[in-house]
């Protein structure tokens, strides 16, 4: 899209914005013109924050969570239980678990779930690193906390084949009815799993 009426600085930013996930040419133009007319402080601080994101953050060399210091605060926290390891697909899943304030163990972030159709295979995930961690010893239980989707289940099933030979206890997050849900409207699969995982009172 060459247009002499608009300076290259503008068109270049539009093109860059539209490379972001979930943003198409229309939204990209709107964002660009917003910054053009809006306060320059916002645009500059955005630029600075993006720069910080790239320059200052990295992956923790132990759990591969996103961090500014290596090892990350969770891995270097003496009070966290290093014998229990929770395996999650994404850093956002880790955040969700942290919000519960119930989990006191440590983590391992895979950075994705197996999705052959999207071109994500075992070699793209941090599985080798997880194996190496377990081989070092000290971990007694691995909790597989992948999503209850077919991709998450696939990832968990594959991890099981990789981790089982290492002789640690492997568990998976419970699954069943959501809070505030309605039995009447629960689907058959969810109900079946809830029945399977019923608990003694």
């Amino acid at each position: 899209m060459k247009n002499v009426a608009i300076p290259p600085a503008v068109t270049r930013l539009i093109e860059t914005f539209s490379e972001l996930p979930g943003i198409g040419p229309k939204t990209a133009s709107r964002l660009t013109f917003y910054h053009l007319r809006g306060k320059s402080e916002l645009a500059l601080s955005l630029a600075k924050e993006l720069q910080n994101l790239v320059e200052k953050t990295r992956f923790c060399s132990i759990c591969y969570n996103v961090t500014e210091e290596d090892p990350c605060p969770i891995c270097s926290d003496e009070s966290r239980d290093k014998k229990v390891l929770c395996v999650v697909a994404e850093p956002l899943d880790l955040l969700a678990l942290e919000r519960t304030e119930q989990y006191t163990g440590s983590y391992h972030v895979l950075h994705g779930a197996l999705a052959p159709l999207e071109g994500i295979f075992a070699e793209d995930l941090r599985i080798k690193e997880l194996e190496a961690r377990l081989r070092k010893g000290g971990v007694e239980e691995v909790i597989l906390a992948t999503n209850p989707t077919s991709e998450g289940d696939y990832t968990a099933a594959y991890l099981l084949t990789r981790l089982k030979p290492l002789g640690v206890r492997i568990t998976r997050l419970g699954r069943g009815l959501p809070m505030g849900g309605d039995l009447e409207y629960a689907d058959a699969v969810t109900l079946t799993r809830a029945l399977e995982a019923r608990q003694e009172l």
Binding site: P116, A122, E123
Partner: peptide
């Protein structure tokens, strides 16, 4: 539905294993 969806996953994985190599044990759950 589940069969068809898993089959296309499996075929994508088979092509990857053929072209790039990788752990064939990824096939087991599929």
């Amino acid at each position: 539905n589940s069969y068809t969806q898993t089959l296309s996953r499996c075929n994508a994985l088979l092509r990857y294993l053929r072209d790039e190599g990788g752990d064939p044990a990824q096939l087991a759950p599929l």
